[in-house]
């Protein structure tokens, strides 16, 4: 088995210090976590659980490449309808005049309540000005997401989203007194450890 050449132990020490320094630096530059789309939707509607990725994606893992899509209103060019594209995320993305991003998601969710679903005559009929009801079950997408428990706006009726999984054994603890600065403080502590490590090694020589 190959070993680090004993004659180059000084280099090994340098590398060890460099590795410690690297992770001191990276640990110190912590960034606050952002909720992903399901979390934003959950927070917006105050739901007990977040929608699954498969609401908008063809894959449970999500990802840009698996976003559901549609090009034309599902009920055609001449039939008045507020089902829109028949795909929830396509209807959601068409709210307002901006692309669907984390920054525009909340505004678009709110527009689901008021904005006419079908507003682009190149996609189909715009004669019906009601808000989106993707599955056409009589309950708007906004109201379905706002229900408790939330309903699936793509499935007529209650849908699979009626009961979401809950995690944990039933025990509960109070929220620990941590805030967004926790990672920053932790990073500072790691940095202090790295500095102390180097100083301690120097003191022992």
């Amino acid at each position: 088995m190959r070993r680090f050449p004993s004659g180059a132990h000084g280099l090994g020490t340098v590398l060890a210090r460099a590795a410690a320094a690297l992770f001191v630096v990276t640990a110190a530059s912590t960034a606050a976590a952002e909720p992903e789309f399901p979390g934003i939707i959950q927070e917006t509607f105050g739901s007990s659980c977040a929608p699954q990725c498969t609401l908008c994606h063809t894959s449970p893992q999500g990802g840009e490449a698996t976003v559901k899509s549609a090009d034309f209103y599902v009920d055609g060019m001449t039939t008045p309808s507020h089902r829109g594209f028949g795909v929830f995320v396509a209807n959601l993305g068409a709210r307002g005049n901006t692309a669907l991003t984390k920054d525009t998601l909340v505004a678009k969710l709110k527009l689901l309540k008021t904005e006419a679903c079908q507003k682009d005559k190149t996609r189909g009929s715009i004669d019906d000005t009601a808000p989106c009801d993707t599955d056409g079950d009589g309950m708007s997408d906004f109201d379905e997401l706002d229900a408790e428990p939330a309903r699936d706006p793509e499935v007529s009726g209650v849908g699979n989203g009626a009961v979401c999984p809950a995690y944990g054994c039933g025990a509960s603890i109070g929220t620990l007194p941590r805030d967004a600065d926790t990672n920053g403080r932790a990073g500072a502590l790691m940095a202090a450890f790295g500095v102390a490590l180097v100083l301690a090694r120097r003191a022992r020589r």
């Binding site: 659980c49 809950a166 025990a171 509960s172 603890i173 929220t175």
Partner: peptide, 9 residues
């Protein structure tokens, strides 16, 4: 999970 926090906690 053992505890039951469902959000980012």
């Amino acid at each position: 999970q053992v505890t039951t926090g469902q959000g980012e906690t």
